[in-house]
Simulated assay, not measured.
Amino acid sequence: MIFYFLLMNILTLIFFSYDKFSAKNHKKRISEHTLLSLTLFGGTIGAVSGMFLFRHKISKTSFLLKFGVIILIQIILIFSFRKYLYSFI
């Protein structure tokens, strides 16, 4: 479980980094859907790190709203299933 989240966060950070690089160099971009999906499936820390380290997607309101909804969903899921999560730790 820890390996999964570590891998997802590293992968998400790499995707945010590559998308910022692509944006600066006018190359083909990674879709917001892909970035948000990686965040949803466990890459939240990597996404937040990428947003702040590379100053990427931090001024795009529509992205931030969707990102906030994902974080809210994750918080609700964690609190809803916290008794089951302790068995994985």
Rank of each mutant, 00 (worst) to 15 (best):
L65Y: 09
S22E: 09
I76Y: 09
I58K: 15
N25R: 12
I10F: 11
K24T: 07
M1N: 08
T34Q: 11
E32R: 05
I14Q: 08
L72F: 13
F5I: 10
F21V: 09
A47L: 01
F63W: 04
K24L: 14
I30T: 13
M8C: 10
L40M: 08
F21R: 14
S49G: 07
S17L: 11
I70C: 03
G46V: 03
R82P: 06
I71Y: 09
H33G: 14
I45L: 10
A47P: 01
G43C: 01
I30C: 06
K20W: 04
G46I: 00
I76H: 04
K24C: 04
N9T: 02
F15V: 14
S31D: 00
S87D: 13
E32F: 06
Y4Q: 08
F21P: 02
G50E: 00
I70N: 02
I2D: 09
F67K: 03
F21Y: 14
I45E: 04
Y84C: 10
Y84S: 14
I76W: 06
Y4H: 05
F79E: 11
S17R: 09
T61W: 13
N9F: 05
I73D: 00
K27D: 04
F21N: 11
S37I: 10
H56R: 01
R29L: 08
T12R: 00
F52Y: 14
L7Q: 02
R55A: 10
F16A: 00
K57T: 02
I89A: 14
I76T: 07
L65I: 14
K57P: 02
S31Q: 03
T34L: 11
K28Y: 15
T34D: 10
T34C: 08
M8L: 09
F3D: 15
K24M: 12
Q74P: 04
S59F: 09
F3S: 14
L11Q: 00
R82T: 08
S59D: 13
S87A: 15
G68M: 01
F3V: 13
L13K: 03
L72S: 13
H26T: 05
F88I: 15
K20F: 05
I58F: 12
Y4L: 04
Y4G: 06
G50W: 04
M1S: 14
